[in-house]
C-alpha cells in the first residue's frame, strides 16, 4: 500500500500527501501552522484538546486534524470563522481553568485567535491545586494539566506498561491520578519519567527544575543541550543533557534535566529511572 498518495485541498490549494497521512500532515504540507496541545509525536493522537480542529466539507462538526486520516478529495478549510471561533474558545476555556504559563505558543495563539481567557471572571472554576511533591525525581503540578492523556498513555499500554497513573473522576473533576490518589512512592511508578517527556504543559517537572525555579535560580539562557548515550546498560538510549552553566553563586555545570530525542530509533524518547534521573553522580 505504501507509495500511494492522497490528493486533498487545504484552503483551496491542492496538496498531495502519502496514504496514511493525517489532515494535520496535509495542513503542514500546505505550509499552514496548526496549533496543537494534546498531540504528541510518540503516542497515538487522542484528539481531546480540539484546538487543531478544521472544517472538512460534508462534515457537520469540525474535524480534529491530528487524528483524521486525509481522504482523497477532502476539502479542508483551516481559517473559517467556525474554526477560528472553536480555537479561540479552546484557548479561553483552557486558559481560564488551567495554568498555561509554561506552555509553548499559548501567548502567540491567544493573539492570533483573539482569545481572552479572563472574560469568564475571577470566580470561574479552575483546576488550581497544590503541587504534588512526594519524591526526589519529579513533581506533579496538576494546576497545569490540560488532560492531554499523553502521560497516562506513555505510562500505560503505549510505552511503559506500568499503569501507575490513569485518568480518574469525570467531567471537570477528572484528573490524572494514582489509585486512590496515593503518593507516587506508594504507587506502581518506576520513575522512568516518560510521562515528563510527553507532558506539553510542564505539569510534570524534574525536581531539579522545580527547586531551581522555586529558588529563582533557573536560568534557561545559561543552559545548553547535548546528546550523548546513557552509561547504565546495553540498550544505548540517547540522553539529551540539559546543563545549566552556573547556578546562583556556583559557577559549576549542573545537569538540570534529562530528555531523550523522540526520533531516536532505539527508544523513541523513552528512558528508565537510571538514564532519566541517575546523572547526579557527576556532580560533587
Amino acid at each position: 500500500m505504501s507509495g500511494h498518495e492522497v490528493a486533498v485541498t487545504v484552503d483551496g490549494r491542492p496538496v498531495v500527501v502519502p496514504e496514511g497521512a493525517t489532515v494535520l500532515d496535509a495542513c503542514t504540507a500546505a505550509g499552514i501552522d496548526t496549533p496543537t496541545l494534546c498531540f504528541g509525536d510518540t503516542v497515538a493522537a487522542r484528539n481531546v484538546c480540539r484546538i487543531c480542529v478544521v472544517d472538512v466539507a460534508g462534515s457537520r462538526a469540525l474535524v480534529p486534524s491530528c487524528s483524521r486520516p486525509a481522504e482523497p478529495g477532502m476539502e479542508i478549510a483551516t481559517d473559517t470563522p467556525r474554526v477560528r471561533h472553536a480555537r479561540r474558545m479552546v484557548l479561553e476555556l483552557l486558559g481560564s481553568s488551567v495554568d498555561l504559563s509554561l506552555t509553548d505558543h499559548v501567548e502567540e495563539w491567544n493573539a492570533r485567535y483573539g482569545a481572552d481567557p479572563d472574560r469568564f471572571g475571577p470566580d470561574a472554576a479552575t483546576v488550581a491545586q497544590p503541587v504534588k511533591v512526594d519524591n526526589d525525581c519529579f513533581v506533579r503540578d496538576y494546576s497545569r494539566c490540560i488532560l492531554c492523556y499523553q502521560c497516562t498513555d506513555a505510562c500505560g499500554e503505549q510505552w511503559q506498561h506500568t499503569f501507575a497513573i490513569a485518568i480518574a473522576g469525570r467531567g471537570f473533576d477528572a484528573t490524572v491520578s494514582t489509585e486512590h490518589g496515593v503518593g507516587l512512592p506508594d504507587s506502581a511508578c518506576v520513575y522512568c519519567g516518560n510521562c515528563i517527556e510527553v507532558c506539553p504543559t510542564d505539569a510534570l517537572m524534574f525536581r531539579t527544575e522545580f527547586d531551581l525555579r522555586t529558588m529563582g535560580t533557573w536560568a534557561s539562557e545559561r543552559q545548553t543541550r547535548t546528546d550523548t548515550i546513557c552509561a547504565f546498560c546495553g540498550v544505548g538510549c540517547t540522553l539529551t543533557l540539559h546543563v545549566q552553566h552556573g547556578v546562583g553563586d556556583d559557577d559549576g555545570d549542573r545537569i538540570v534535566k534529562v530528555t531523550s530525542p523522540h526520533s531516536s530509533s532505539v527508544t523513541a524518547g523513552n528512558l528508565c529511572i537510571k538514564g532519566r534521573f541517575g546523572a547526579g553522580h557527576v556532580h560533587p
Binding site: 526526589d136 547504565f232 528508565c272
Partner: peptide, 16 residues
C-alpha cells in the same frame, strides 16, 4: 531497576 553494578554511580542519586 534503579541501581547499577556495585552502585558506585547510582548510589549518588536519590531513588524513590
Amino acid at each position: 531497576l534503579d541501581s547499577y553494578n556495585t552502585g558506585v554511580q547510582t548510589r549518588r542519586f536519590s531513588s524513590p
